[in-house]
Amino acid sequence: MDSENWLYSVEGTEFSLDAKWVIDPKHLFVGPRIGEGAHAKVYEGRYRNQNVAIKIVHRGETPEEIAKREARFAREVAMLSRVQHKNLVKFIGACKEPVMVIVTELLLGGTLRKYLLNLRPRCLETRVAVVFALDIARAMECLHSHGIIHRDLKPENLILTADHKTVKLVDFGLAREESLTEMMTAETGTYRWMAPELYSTVTLRHGEKKHYNHKVDAYSFAIVLWELVHNRLPFEGMSNLQAAYAAAFKNVRPSAEDLPEDLALILTSCWKEDPNARPNFTQIIKMLLHYLSMLSPPEPLIPSRSFASDNMVFPPESPGTSSLMAIRDDLGETTKAKMENKSRGFFFCFNHCY
């Protein structure tokens, strides 16, 4: 294996990927598919005897499509390789031949979306919801401290650890570095969770561009926090586009009237129409910690459940990795346990697949 650094190009600018992050396909074994997006599929796998999640990115057909996806892949690899945090999915490596591949840790707890669906009609205990929100806010604080906007914060891109006690942020396919002067694509992320400044009668047209900053993530965080507390889909009864239109042009937000005052203040400040009036994630963390300190002593955490529906595929509403998790069977047994009892032949050699 060539130990030299690999060069990637991100929108015309080359960056060097340190050799320690370069995946050797000969040691990569691909197992069952566990997620699928518009431009990528995610598989359970193994790399050098480590259980991993393998994201394989489709290159596209036309030269324009290929160039766009290669740039997006390079941008995601660049960001994953330089930002590490306990609430961000752990990056293991990447390769660009024979296909574009991103390898990360395998998270066994499932997406936050599936976790909440399995809990309905019940809601998370308030303390648990706030602890999850703190995990998300800390991940976002880390990204923003590195000048990175995620732009696609939603429950499908938040994965739980096997013990269901920690939430990690995944999918950097739409993330990019912030620039005060750069014109950035407006139609990014998923409509229901997107900040209203991403819309106008012009920017709703595909391909148009608009100025915005990291405060778009604060808005998305507020919508996710509302979901954590209520365990309901925000803007119920509306399509994704209807929700976006209502938020952007009518200043409609989910109701915060039935919430404790301090919690309602966090939500309403984060989804303010004026981005500059929204708090940053350092401030959000302080507010969440203060609210957490006022709650009664912790009750037992959420009872364990059999995630029989984890075999269902919930396709994401935006491109990228929808899940980095192991599938469970109807008895609740994770594939991790099965993997430990099977030989390496359980997986297909990556080189043979491609």
Rank of each mutant, 00 (worst) to 15 (best):
M1K: 15
E14I: 12
S16E: 13
A19W: 03
K20L: 08
V22D: 02
D24W: 04
D24L: 13
V30C: 02
P32I: 06
E36P: 02
H39G: 06
N49D: 12
V52Y: 11
H58C: 13
H58P: 05
T62N: 06
A67I: 06
A67M: 08
R72C: 10
L80D: 00
V83K: 00
H85P: 07
K86Q: 12
L88G: 01
I92L: 13
A94R: 00
M100W: 06
E105S: 15
L107G: 00
L107M: 15
R113C: 04
R113H: 14
K114V: 09
L117D: 14
L119Y: 05
R122P: 02
L124I: 15
V128T: 15
F132Q: 06
L134T: 06
I136R: 03
A139C: 09
C142F: 15
I148V: 10
I148T: 08
I149T: 04
L160H: 03
T161A: 14
L169N: 01
L174I: 05
R176N: 10
E177T: 08
E178P: 05
T181Q: 12
M183V: 08
A186T: 02
A186W: 00
E187Q: 09
Y191K: 12
A195K: 02
A195F: 13
E197H: 09
V202H: 04
R205M: 11
H206V: 03
K210T: 15
Y212A: 00
V216A: 07
F221A: 07
H230Y: 12
H230I: 07
G237D: 01
A246Q: 08
A248R: 04
V252Y: 11
P254V: 11
P254F: 14
P260H: 09
L263G: 03
A264R: 04
T268L: 07
C270T: 06
W271G: 02
K272L: 14
E273V: 11
A277Q: 14
T282Q: 07
Y291W: 12
S293H: 13
P300R: 14
P300K: 09
P300M: 07
S304M: 08
F314L: 15
P315W: 09
P315D: 09
P316D: 03
S318M: 08
P319T: 10
I327G: 02
T335D: 09
K338Q: 13
